[in-house]
Structure formats: C-alpha cells, structure tokens
C-alpha cells in the first residue's frame, strides 16, 4: 500500500484520538466542577474549548487532504467519511461540556443543594468509558467494542431517569431549590446528549467496518 496514504491515515488516527482525549478531559473537568463546586475548573474548560475547535478544523483539513491526494476507495474511503462525522460529534460533545461547566459556575455562586449520585459516580464513569471505547473501536476497526458502547447507552439513560426522580423529589420538598434543581436537570440532559453522540460514533464504526448503514435502529442490536 502507498506509504504516503498509510502515513496520512496513521496521523489522522492520532489526531482524532487527541481530540477524543481533549473532549474527555473537558467533560471530566466540567463534572468535577459541578459536583465539587470548583469554579476555577470552569475557566480551564472554556480555554480547552478553544483548543478543541482548533483541533477539529485541523482534522477536517487532514481529511480533505487524504481525499484529494489519494482518492481512497472502499474501507479507506469509509474511514475518512466516518472520521469527518466523528470529528463533528466530538466537537459537539465539547460544546455540551462547556454548557455543563457554565451551569457549574452559576451553581457555585449560589448555596449548594444536594447533588444526585449520578453526577459523581455512574454517569461520569460510564461516559468516560463510552468516549474512550468508541474511539478505540474507530481506530482499531473493532465492531464488538462498538456494539458494547451502544449497549452502555442504556446505563446512562437509566442513571438519567434516577437523577430526574431525585431532583423532582427535591423540588417538591423545597420550592426554593427549583432554580438550582432545574440547572442540574439541564446538566443531566447535556450528559445524556453526550452519551447519544458516543453512540453515533459507535454506529458509524459499524458502518465503516461492515459497509452497512445501521443508524436509526432500535437498541435491539
């Protein structure tokens, strides 16, 4: 195979993994800022966002370069198409992390309310795993890992429902907490969206490897 193409594809894989790391780190910081009330982390997240945007642009340019210079076909072509979509998804995940961080800042300036357990253990853990595994599946062309990521979405959905129940109970109990509880609800929704985006990534990986479009199917895979 052409050395140039191999080299460019390898470098593209490195870049997308770097972006994945950056986004994962942003999400973690945002969640820690939220659960431990640390507004200084919020600043870091906002700074990281700039870097994430730059990396996204760089990856898109690299993809265009491979398409123009090498005219890839078959699996290589599908890989490039998937990378472009994943690139987009990761950047949106970064945006959601920023949204969570902003809410965290607001909440840190107000009196604390009890934070549902989901925000500190299950959800961050699961989301971190999903991000990491979906990108591993991408660079290793591993369909089994991708399918596991799709299953893990259920865990996040479940945790999300529990957090909703807790916050609803809190709001009913003490109506002065409504503002803060609603902010937390928003964060919960952002996290669910992040998990959905990693599921998209996993579905794209299955398309890339098997050549079949598997989107928009029920979770009965």
């Amino acid at each position: 195979m052409s050395l140039h193409l191999q080299r460019d594809l390898d470098s593209l894989k490195k870049e997308i993994l770097q972006l994945g790391n950056m986004v994962e780190s942003s999400i973690n910081k945002a969640l820690v800022a939220l659960s431990e009330r640390r507004p200084e982390l919020v600043e870091e997240v906002l700074q990281d966002e700039i870097q994430i945007d730059l990396q996204e642009v760089s990856i898109e340019e690299s993809c265009l370069k491979v398409l123009a210079l090498h005219q890839p076909v078959a699996v290589d072509l599908r890989f490039i198409v998937v990378v472009l979509k994943v690139n987009n998804d990761l950047e949106r995940m970064g945006d959601f992390a920023v949204n969570v961080a902003k809410r965290a800042k607001e909440l840190s300036e107000q009196d604390p309310i009890p934070c549902p357990a989901g925000f500190t253990d299950v959800v961050p853990q699961t989301i971190r795993t999903m991000v990491r595994d979906s990108l591993t599946a991408l660079v290793k062309f591993d369909v089994d890992i991708a399918r596991e990521v799709i299953h893990m979405d259920d865990v996040v959905d479940q945790a999300n429902r529990l957090m909703y129940k807790d916050l609803k109970a809190l709001m009913v109990e003490d109506s002065s907490t409504v503002d803060r509880a609603v902010s937390l609800l928003s964060c919960s929704r952002y996290l669910e969206r992040i998990a959905d985006l990693t599921t998209n990534i996993a579905e794209d990986v299955i398309f890339m490897v098997e050549g079949e479009v598997v989107r928009h199917q029920s979770t009965g895979l």
Partner: peptide, 9 residues
C-alpha cells in the same frame, strides 16, 4: 487520564 496509544514508527 490515560490516553490510547498507537505505535507509529
């Protein structure tokens, strides 16, 4: 935070 590494010569 661990990162995923790929061997590239």
């Amino acid at each position: 935070m661990s990162t995923i590494e790929i061997d590239i010569e």
